[in-house]
């Protein structure tokens, strides 16, 4: 289906790949090629974001450095603690290192690739969404990859180094670590997208989202067994530190296929759920009843 998309002679008559680009919703391109073009798009954006960050090399290095320091301080605190107290609730220094390595790496990758998610609420409030709506790329995806937090590289760097050097993992643990970091990053991204998308319904979304993210980070970096009862329920639902941190940490130390399957299911479900929330909000925005809408 060579469709004319441009004036003769520009070469754009067949600029599109032979795949039917005009396929309407409901007809699907082969999943593999969709995934491939998505990956290419994300990769491109990460590269461009990195170029921008590196354009100010000193500031970039400083940001990365400060994130490493921040993470290191926390691990240092735990080191101090475990010098005095051998263990707490079954956690020793090694366990805490695993927690920090996992969280830091997951949040780091999030910062490097998907930090645009943290801007959704503010962009909706300022009407900056329109920019993405007139482009043919899915607005949510585009929004999410549009920003990078250079500090994320510091987090990820710290996480990986701490895991390798301080936790001295076995081969199995290392493999598990990689897989679990990916799942954790997915859940983090989905969570932030969902909470930030509340901006389509309330003007307070930016504050709520900030609190939610801090809450997530804070709860994720402490031993799971400190919390019981109702708090634990919250930590597996409203503030999913359970899925971002506790379950992955358990799995790194002791792999369990059933539990891993559950985590995978949660990750996938959270992606779809987040997209659904955003899409519902977008529909609201487009019919103009979103509170935060401005001209």
């Amino acid at each position: 289906m060579a469709r004319r998309t441009g004036p003769p002679g520009t070469g754009l008559e067949r600029a599109t790949t032979p795949k039917p680009r005009l396929a309407r919703r409901g007809s699907r391109e082969p999943l593999a090629s969709q995934a491939w073009s998505l990956l290419r798009f994300v990769a491109y954006y990460v590269g461009a974001n990195l170029d921008v960050a590196l354009a100010y090399r000193a500031a970039f290095a400083a940001k990365v450095f400060s994130f490493v320091v921040s993470d290191a301080m926390w691990v240092a605190f735990w080191w101090l603690y475990f010098e005095r107290f051998p263990s707490v609730e079954g956690y020793g220094f090694r366990q805490v290192v695993i927690v920090w390595a996992l969280c830091a790496t997951a949040f780091g990758i999030f910062g490097a690739i998907a930090a645009g998610a943290t801007t959704i609420a503010s962009r909706v409030a300022r009407g900056e969404l329109d920019f993405y709506l007139v482009l043919p790329k899915a607005p949510l995806l585009h929004l999410v990859v549009s920003r990078m937090d250079p500090g994320g590289f510091g987090d990820a760097l710290f996480g990986i180094v701490a895991f390798a050097a301080l936790a001295r993992p076995s081969f199995e643990e290392a493999v598990a670590f990689v897989v679990l970091v990916v799942l954790a990053t997915v859940i983090i991204t989905a969570y932030i997208v969902a909470v930030q998308s509340l901006a389509f319904w309330t003007g307070r979304a930016e504050t709520i989202a900030d609190q939610a993210l801090s809450g997530l980070i804070t709860f994720a970096t402490y031993p799971e067994r400190l919390f019981g009862g109702p708090v634990k329920v919250v930590l597996f639902t409203l503030v999913p530190a359970g899925f971002v941190s506790y379950v992955p940490v358990r799995l790194v130390q002791e792999w369990d296929w059933a539990l891993a399957g559950v985590l995978l299911a949660v990750a996938v479900a959270s992606l779809y759920g987040a997209e659904a929330v955003f899409t519902a909000g977008l529909r609201r925005y487009q019919s103009g009843s979103a509170l935060a809408m401005r001209g």
Partner: peptide, 12 residues
């Protein structure tokens, strides 16, 4: 969270 941590510590 810190309250919980110290509570567990004192207990341990």
């Amino acid at each position: 969270i810190l309250g919980k941590l110290w509570e567990a510590t004192y207990r341990a």
